[in-house]
Design a protein around this nucleic acid. Sequence first.
RNA 1: GGGCAGGUACCCAAGUGGACAACGGGGGCAGACUGUAAAUCUGCUGGCGCAAGCCUUCGGAGGUUCGAAUCCUUCCCUGCCCA
Length: 396
Amino acid sequence: MEAERQFEIIKTNTVEIISEEELLKKLKRQRPLRVKLGIDPSAPEIHLGISVQLRKLRQFQELGHIAVLVVGDFTGMIGDPSGQSKTRPKLTREQIKKNMAKYKEQIFKILDPKRTEFSYNSKWLGALTIYDFIDIASKHTVARILERDDFSIRLKEGIPVYMHEIMYPLFQAYDSVAIKADIELGGTDQKFNLLVGREMMRELQMEPQVIMTLPILEGTDGVRKMSKSFGNYIGITESPKEMFGKIMSIPDELIIKYFELTTDIFPHKIEEFRSGLQEGILNPRDVKFELAKTLVRMYHSAQVAEESAREFEKIYSKKELPTDLKEFKIGLEEINIVDLLMKTGLMPSRAEAKRKIKEGAIDIDGNPVKDINYVVKLNKPVVLRAGKHKFLKIIS
RNA sequence: GGGCAGGUACCCAAGUGGACAACGGGGGCAGACUGUAAAUCUGCUGGCGCAAGCCUUCGGAGGUUCGAAUCCUUCCCUGCCCA
């Protein structure tokens, strides 16, 4: 495909490309470009936030380019200073191997394995001598590194910044040198690191990588970046039910952003949703419903997506019971409600169970239980509900 | 090495001898409402107990006191200034 056309495709949904001219120049050579993305081996679960970047990679692959995934098994020991990540626990070789096996299983739901390369940065970073290290460090100033947003913020607020952390951008940059990256992708929060890669390559007389930043996807709380450590993520291998529900819980304002960044829906269709929502013609609930169906279809199947949708309506709109009601055998003829909640594990403590009973969150066969001394008779199976999402069929 | 300021629950943060299981915010959970597990409003958010109350918790360890998150000693950790 001609370079200009490729460029247009690649540019969609990006925040910034530095520089566009250089990218076009690279594309015009009509040879496969090496597109780098760093991945963190300590978080083997791929979620929609990461999928934004992986999907962009996929796009490159479809245009004939190569995805080069740099597994940060070395830099993982440091932990990217962005976010308030504490010093990460050192991973053993086995853990990394295990995590990566899990990672690969998921990643090829998005990427094309034939055009994907994996390399572990311990291979070259671990081989650096202290002399090499000093040589690299001597080309970068503290002031320049401290310009980085999160460093300067931490410094200003008196939050510690450790020496190994300020080395992080240099190591990541060196990865680009080692794999001879043409382009590096990252979230907008990665801009600084990506730029350091460019500089380092130039220092070493290499053609600098082009950097491309992509939007950060907010998690289910609608505020913070989707991340495993915030617990606001939607994993691409989650069960259809879970996935559907989590998507329905994102704030309405994020619906369009999710469509754009995480789905394969055509732009004109998304435009339709956008204007429909703006003008109040479409109910946000219905559009979000479409979003949930789309994502479940992408990561499971069309059929499962339909089923999840029906199930969701059944439980939350019609307030009926789920189809796959789990059973719990208690081995007793009757039991106090609090004990029951504890035995089934639906409540973490007796105090919590009592609280929830008083709040009216517990019901048996559709009848709210408000008395903490209520005794449940089990001469026939009953359905215990705790809150909106927890159901169990109790049998004696 | 010296001086100063700090370390509080999942996170941020108030509290500086009793009224503190500890203000407030975030997050979480629940209820109401809603064609949404959205938004909004309300409640709850250490454990055991029907309750009175008891137990555990304020960086660690000791101590003073009838009584400590709050005072003292010591240790560990962080920031700032000086060297």
